[in-house]
Every structure is written in C-alpha cells, then in structure tokens.
Write a protein that binds this DNA or RNA. Sequence first.
DNA 1: TAGTGGTCTAGACCACTCA
DNA 2: GAGTGGTCTAGACCACTAT
Lengths: 230, 230
Amino acid sequence: MTANSHHNIRQVLRERIESGEWALGALIPGELALAVEYRCARTTINRALQTLADEGLVVRKRKGGTRVCQMPVRHAKFEIPIVREQVEVIGSKYRHQIMSQQKKTPTASVRTRLRIPDAKKALFMETIHLADERPYAYEERWVNIQAVPKIMDAPLDQISVNEWLVKTVPFSSGDVVFSAVNADKRVAGALESKVGNAIFLVDRTTWLGEEFITTIKLYYRDGYQLYSQL
Amino acid sequence: MTANSHHNIRQVLRERIESGEWALGALIPGELALAVEYRCARTTINRALQTLADEGLVVRKRKGGTRVCQMPVRHAKFEIPIVREQVEVIGSKYRHQIMSQQKKTPTASVRTRLRIPDAKKALFMETIHLADERPYAYEERWVNIQAVPKIMDAPLDQISVNEWLVKTVPFSSGDVVFSAVNADKRVAGALESKVGNAIFLVDRTTWLGEEFITTIKLYYRDGYQLYSQL
DNA sequence: TAGTGGTCTAGACCACTCA
DNA sequence: GAGTGGTCTAGACCACTAT
C-alpha cells in the first residue's frame, strides 16, 4: 500500500490542522514545500488540499496560498430522502396509496411556483405512504401537465408518481425547504395523528431547465427525525 | 482557454446523460474511449467522471465500468447554520442573551450522549438568540466540563459559548437531527410563542476524537424554514 | 484472469492576485 | 512582476471484481 496516497496525506494534513499546529486563519506551507516534506508529487498534495477545501477546512487562493478556515463549519451532505427507501431502511414493508387524483386549477402560490398560466389546470394528487400498513407520510403533489403531458396516460395506480417521473424526467434539479407545522384536520386525519401535533414538513420543487415539473409537500408522521452526519 | 478542461468535459458528459443518450442504469464508454473521443488524457476524463460520481449521477466500479445511476438523486449539501449568520443574512441585528448557566447533573439521556460518568456534573446553559431584539431561537446546551475544563474561566458574557468553543475546540465532528416538536411552556415562553405551536428543532452533538464536547438543542421561532438547493 | 477504474509521478504551462 | 494554486499530459502500476 502506498504511503503517499492522497487519502493518507489528506488525513495527516487534517490532523495537523485539527491539532492546532496551524492556527485558525493561518497560512499553511505551499504545495511544493509539502510535496518535498512528504516526498511525493505536487499533484498529490494538490488533490489532498482540494479535498480539504471542499470539506470547508481550508481556503485556497492563487498567490495567496492556503489558509485554515476561520469558521471551520463542516458542510453537511445528505441525500434527499426517497420515502420508500426510508421505510425499507427501518425494516418496514412499504406501500403507497393514492387518495385522490384530479386535474384542477392550482392555487395562486402553486401557479407562481410552477409558472403555470392562470387559465391552465394541473394535476393534483394526494398519496399516503405506509410503513407496515401504518401511515408514514402524507404527500400532496402538483404536476405541471404542460411540461409532462404523458403523465395523464401513465398507469399511476401501478407505479408511483415519483418513480414514473424519475424514469421520465430523470435529471431535474430543484430545491427543498424543511419546516415544522401544526397538523390541520386533513393532515392529522391522513396520518392518524391529532390536530395540532407538530409535523415535520418537506417542501420540494423540481424543474428541468426552464420548465417546472412538480412541487410536493411531504408531511411526516409524529416523531419523524431527519438525521445527518457532519 | 482549454477546451478540454475537466470542467467542460464534465458538463458535456452531464448533458449527454441528462439528454437520455445513455439510459438509466446503462453502461457508458470507458475512460480510454472517452479520452480518445475528446482527445485528452485519460486522467482528465477520470477527474470529470469522479466528480459526476460524487454528485450521484453515475456509479463507477472497477472492471464493471461506469453506469448511469438508477435513481439519480442529487445529493443536497448544506452548511450547518450558525445562528448569528442566519440572523445577519436576513438583515437583522443579532444579539444573544444567556438566561441561565449552572453546573448540574445531566439527565440520563444527556449523560449517555456525552459519555459522562454518573456522578459527574456538566455545564448547562440556556441562551436566547435575538434578531432585532425579538426571539429568533432558544438554545439549551450541555457542555462536558471534563473535556473542556477551561470553559469555566471563559468570559461567557462577552463571547458566545459557541464562538468560544469554536476557537478552543475548532475541529470537532458531530451529527445533527432535525425534527418538529410542539412548544411546551418553557420553549413557548422563551420564543414568545404559544404552547403547542410547531417548532423546528435542531439537535446537534459534537465531539473531538473520542471525547464528547457538547450537545445542543436549538428551537427556532415560528415559521422558521431551512432551505437547501439540490 | 482480464478489464476497468484508482492513483502516483514528473514536467509543463496557465491564471489569478498580491504587493 | 512574481509567487501560488489550477490543470493537463503521458506513462506507469495497482486494486478490485465480473466473468
């Protein structure tokens, strides 16, 4: 095993930083100096330092050199959860059930969000995600039919909207908003919870290029927690 | 400008994937083939593909080749928020106020979490974070005094615990849990909210190596949202 | 066992930016 | 203008794993 893998060097450098050898905001040696010290190519040092920069541990500037970050806040990465996988990870059997499905005129806020002209309709769906036949999450979804007209012909009773969309429009980008809301009658009913209970809400909108595809609100059952490593 | 930067190639490859040229789960050409096609070094292709793998767009296996991901879920990265910065970003004036500060025996769950022996005490603090003099978040924090004994001498009225800890134990790792809870009397009072209101709760624990440093619960004011790009 | 990605090297040139 | 990081290349060898 190579002692000079960029992995090893990255780890050693990380330790030198964490040990306080280089203070917060201090300049650390240049790539060339480190390459000599560790007897490896500059490229290898470069890889290691770039990774540390990605992690937010150091800041690099041409001519300015590499500095230890002032506020070393680790970036948390986490994957936007897919409900089915979440359920299966906790060892439960997953099933989903469509409660309602209709074309109708979206509310003003949804129209704005999906950039749908005023007169047009969109597809609205309510779905319950079940874990071992108990409600796990309640989903409200709007789909922009103009962007994905084929969805009206899709066998949505057999395949979940989400999976159909992923297969049809696989590489959309989007945003997510997490918040806490009190369950209203509708949500409480769907989740077999109580009105007023605090519910973890994930609000996601996705689009492809300039076209908005779908916006979805996911209400999770009581006690749901989203976990992430730093 | 080099036409064959790994940035450009990454972008081109991404477009070829997103356009559907390579289907979900399909094998894409090997690095060597792509290097020939784009007339660049294999290393360059490798960089581009590794980035795409980081993004979760492709999966790479030795001997198995590179495949387009089956479930192309973009990984969301976001930075663990520092309350002061959050407040300043929305254009408000930040101030914090320590409500209480005492050494006492932690609850069993905190003891377990911080790995504190049963008989030992820890530092408990309550802090209010204010935005324009209105409550923004309420913080409950336990600090493991054994791990950071110097904290008892720190001028915590002048510098926030958080910033003191960052400067003293800058590079700790940790985990975060997001959830929604109903405000109890204490939290509602601190946030000038109402009992029962849904509160966004961030529960963070950090440690350095094997030693646990601090665990903190942050209750955000009503309507707080955590935003993230995909 | 053979094929593919993972990585290291040595050298070169470029691009940014600080003084 | 000079110093530092950013990146490309060509070649080499290694490590994993599918067949």
